[in-house]
Design a binder for these strands. Structure first.
Lengths: 339, 339
DNA sequence: CTGTTAGCGCTTTCAT
DNA sequence: ATGAAAGCGCTAACAG
């Protein structure tokens, strides 16, 4: 291999200064627009920067300024459509602001999550966005006095930590009420993990909708899932194995709705003709399932965007603005009127 | 709000040294295991570190050592199941290695991609993984003499840049051959964007399979898509609008296969009974569509893992190891024998 | 085994 | 308007 292409040692601000025949401070001033510089020097420096391919070393800048221009994002799963949508919002919220994000995963584990936050803090991120965090509010607050934090899934509102929460109970409520309005009386529920707060709230919404309609709550119609496709399939299978009677299924999230739908397909049961199905999340793929899924739309993208703006505000000591749009039922083609 | 919880100014190595009554070098040595230190001092330092909640400033470390312990990942879409799987591989490949990754998106745009790479370089990443890059090989090589790069989608093998390429042509070939073996004669193709190299190669595979089976290539059966769901739906719609006769559809990727499937559903056409369908990618969701999708499995996760290991090798000047497993057809339930 | 010293590349007073 | 100098927090010779 020819070595002439070999690693150019990256040029430094000092190199540029020498080449342009000015002091380092002058170069720095031009770079940051910190002060006026005479036109001739400016031109010389810009030229030098250009043909030396100079780019400031962000680590040096960061060390000096005490700001890394990096924010940390904590997700629970590096590869899930759920987090993806939110990340897209974050990405857009950061665009053009000069910030970069580093994404780490807590893997749905409070222990690991705290660990990753410590890592981010060591990396001197300027702020943290916590998505579906598992750690306690107290822990969040603890970390928050090192760096500002905005978190989803909790209501927080202190000087350096704020949180947005969506109304899971309400979301589940409107989903089930929709089914009831369609004439369904026996509605099965594929739940989320019992230790998950979102799951618990959705269960509460399911319960309330039933109660308000004077429908009996039948525990046999509630099957535990874990938010993944496989659990949806298993859950519905279980419903059939135990010979439950039902005309509709409400799944705690879209992924488990997909699993439920596959189970139904396997059994030759038509959706929505024989059984209605509604999910929760409205993942991007849910408008392209066959048939497209009726589901509760979570403003995932907006949440990412709003959280990012809020964090930027906290970082700059500005007042935080923006609220999360409400949940909304998207009626597509997996539900229909009974009879 | 009570201010007593207010921002603790993060303690520095010097603080620790003072508190433990030793020199900064000693603390550094303990931190890095660089040299032996007497037991009593070690204990004192560790204690100090502990109760001052000290964590080394990575920016300072990085500046000094010239290594940021960060690698950059360039994807084209921050929220796509395709990149997700690969990122999961990268994440696992990095685990426990002390490296953090920063993910940026080129948004399927060569210009922006180059921009993001420059950004990563400015952030002093120790290496870059380029996923489905759009920039020219020359550009990659150019950047590569600043930092090692490993790229997917191209064959590269220089001192500081290596690339892995999957055999798209072969993948498409086995997909179509499967259909032919099942007795299909008129096989429609929903292509990818014509300027996309992967798409072009897949088209070549489709063509070869047809040719080898002495089947005529009918241009009317080839409809342009763009790798997204909507384009799959539109493409198949177009096929019907123009009254084409076909018994099977090969879609250039899973996402467009989903769209195609929805179109078929809308028209009341059964899959696979009336029409067979095969995709390309094997996204995680493809085993949970109804019916589960027959598709060409791309080892996305492995690609991420292997690319990461390769990059780590490049960074440490070690010999690069590992090859990407071959593509493989996963026969599920959207294809069936004709008649 | 341990402390002193000199920077890594940049920004920022402080003079001029 | 511009340069000299100090220093962000850490590591790595170099002495001892």
């Amino acid at each position: 291999m020819i070595d002439e292409e070999s690693s150019t040692p990256p040029s430094t601000l000092l190199d540029v200064a020498r080449r342009a025949g000015v002091s380092p401070s002058t170069v720095s001033r031009i770079l940051n627009g910190t002060a006026r510089v005479s036109e001739d020097k400016r031109v010389a420096v810009l030229a030098a920067i250009d043909d030396m391919h100079f780019a400031p070393n962000q680590m040096a800048q960061g060390l000096k300024k005490g700001r890394s221009m990096t924010i940390g994002i904590v997700v629970q799963d590096i590869s899930s459509p759920f987090f993806d949508e939110t990340l897209r919002g974050v990405d857009d919220g950061l665009r053009g602001k000069g910030y970069t994000s580093v994404i780490v995963s807590g893997h749905w584990n409070a222990e690991e999550e705290a660990d990753r936050i410590r890592l981010l803090l060591g990396r001197k991120v300027d702020g943290i966005i916590l998505l579906s965090g598992r750690i306690s509010e107290q822990t969040v607050l603890h970390f928050a006095n090192q760096r500002p934090i905005v978190s989803t899934g909790r209501d927080l509102h202190t000087k350096n930590a704020i949180g947005f929460k969506i109304d899971n109970e309400y979301g589940a409520y409107i989903a089930v009420r929709h089914l009831i309005e369609l004439g369904h009386r026996r509605i099965a529920y594929v739940s989320g993990p019992p230790d998950n707060i979102d799951a618990a709230e959705r269960l509460a919404g399911y319960t309330r909708a039933l109660r308000e309609a004077d429908l009996a709550l039948d525990a046999r119609l509630i099957v535990e899932g874990n938010f993944h496709e496989a659990s949806g399939l298993l859950a519905v299978n279980h419903l059939f194995d135990t010979q439950q009677q039902f005309t509709a299924i409400f799944a705690a999230n879209d992924l488990s709705a997909y699993g439920a739908r596959l189970c139904l397909y396997r059994k030759g049961i038509r959706v929505p003709d024989d059984i209605s199905l509604v999910g929760f999340d409205d993942l991007p793929g849910s408008s392209y399932t066959a048939p497209p899924l009726t589901t509760v739309h979570q403003p995932l993208y907006d949440i990412g965007l709003i959280a990012t703006n809020a964090l930027l505000c906290l970082i700059n000591g500005e007042a935080v603005q923006g609220t999360v749009p409400p949940l909304e039922l998207i009626v597509r083609e997996t539900t229909r009127r009974l009879r």
